[in-house]
Amino acid sequence: MIDHPRYDSIGHGYAIRRREDPRYRERILAALGDARTVVNVGAGAGSYEPRDRYVLAVEPSDVMAAQRAKELAPAIRASAGRLPFRDGSLDAAMSILSLHHWDDEREAGVRELRRVATGPVVIVTFDPEVSRAMWLVTDYLPELADMDRRIFPSLEQLSKWLGGTTHVDVLPIPRDTSDWMLGALWAHPERVLDAAARNATSGFARMPPDVVARVVTAVERDLENGTWDARHGHLRKLDAYDAGLRLLVNTPA
C-alpha cells in the first residue's frame, strides 16, 4: 500500500513549470534505443515519456497523475520497490529525476528497474558532489547539499545496484530550458523570489519554511544591492552550465 506520496503535497502545478526540454527528450529517446515497450517509474506528469512506443507509467501520486496529458496512458499506482511486472517483461525501463524520492526503496527500486527490463535502464539524476558547487548551495542554502547527499545515490552506487555495464553522460542545463528544475536556477536567481517557481523544485519544496524564507530574503537583498552579480554575474554570459545533471544508461551483463 502507498501511504501519502510526497508529491500529493508538493506536486501541485508541477506540469506548468516542469515542461520537458526537447534537447533532453532527444537524449533520453536515443538512450532507449529500439525498445518498443518501456516502463517509466516515478512517471509524474509524463515528461520525457516516448509517444511512439508502448509505455507503462508507474506513479504513486494522484496529484501528479492527474496532470498527465490526455494522450498519455493512465499511470499505474505502485511504488518503485515492488513493480507489478514479471522478470524481463519489458524492453527498457526509465526514471527521470525521480529516484531521490524513493526514500528507503531506492536500492530496491533501482534493482527492480533492472529486473523487469531486458534492455537499457535509463536514469536521469543529479550527482550531489557536482550540484553542491552551485551558487545557490554554496552561498545561500547549504542545507540542500546535506539533503542531496542523503537522497541522491552516487553514480558508483547506482552502477553497483544495476550490475552490467553503465555509461554516464553530463547533461549541461541550458539557460533557456523549459524544464525549471532546481539546477536551472543557475542562470535565473530571480526565480528564487517566485514562490511558484520555487515550489516546482523538490529541493525548495522539501525545506522548512523558515529556511526558505531566509534564502529568499538573502537572495532578494543581494540582487538589489549588486552582491549577487558581483560574485556570479559571469554566469549571465553562459548558454549552459553543469549543475550536476547526469544521464545514466545501463545495459545488462
Rank of each mutant, 00 (worst) to 15 (best):
A205P: 05
P60D: 08
R68W: 03
L72I: 06
V41E: 00
A43C: 13
D229H: 13
D139P: 08
E129S: 08
R206L: 15
T166W: 09
R19F: 05
H167N: 13
F85Y: 03
D146T: 12
L182P: 00
Y7C: 02
R149T: 04
K70N: 02
R206P: 09
G164V: 13
S9C: 05
R114D: 07
T227W: 11
G244F: 09
E49W: 00
L56C: 12
G226T: 08
V124T: 11
V168M: 06
D242H: 08
R27Y: 14
R25E: 09
W161G: 07
D148M: 13
L72W: 05
H100F: 10
L193M: 08
P252I: 10
N225K: 10
P5T: 15
A65F: 03
V212P: 05
F152D: 05
W186K: 02
Y24M: 07
V41Y: 00
A78I: 13
L182V: 10
V122G: 01
Y48D: 06
L97F: 13
T165K: 11
V211A: 15
V219D: 00
L97M: 12
I16R: 15
V215P: 04
R115K: 04
V215N: 03
S89P: 09
A80I: 08
A117Y: 08
T165A: 06
V121H: 05
W135R: 03
N225L: 01
L136M: 08
V116H: 00
S131F: 03
R17W: 09
P209V: 11
Y241M: 10
V116Y: 00
A30C: 05
R86E: 10
G44A: 06
R23Y: 08
S154N: 06
V215R: 02
G88H: 01
R114A: 06
R51W: 12
F204H: 10
E129Y: 04
D91W: 07
W161P: 12
R53N: 03
V168D: 04
R18H: 03
M64P: 13
A117L: 03
V41H: 01
M94K: 01
D139L: 07
L182K: 01
H167M: 14
V137M: 06
M64S: 13
R115H: 02
A200Q: 06
P189Y: 07
W228A: 03
A133Y: 13
S89R: 00
S178H: 05
E49Y: 00
I2A: 04
E105W: 10
V116T: 01
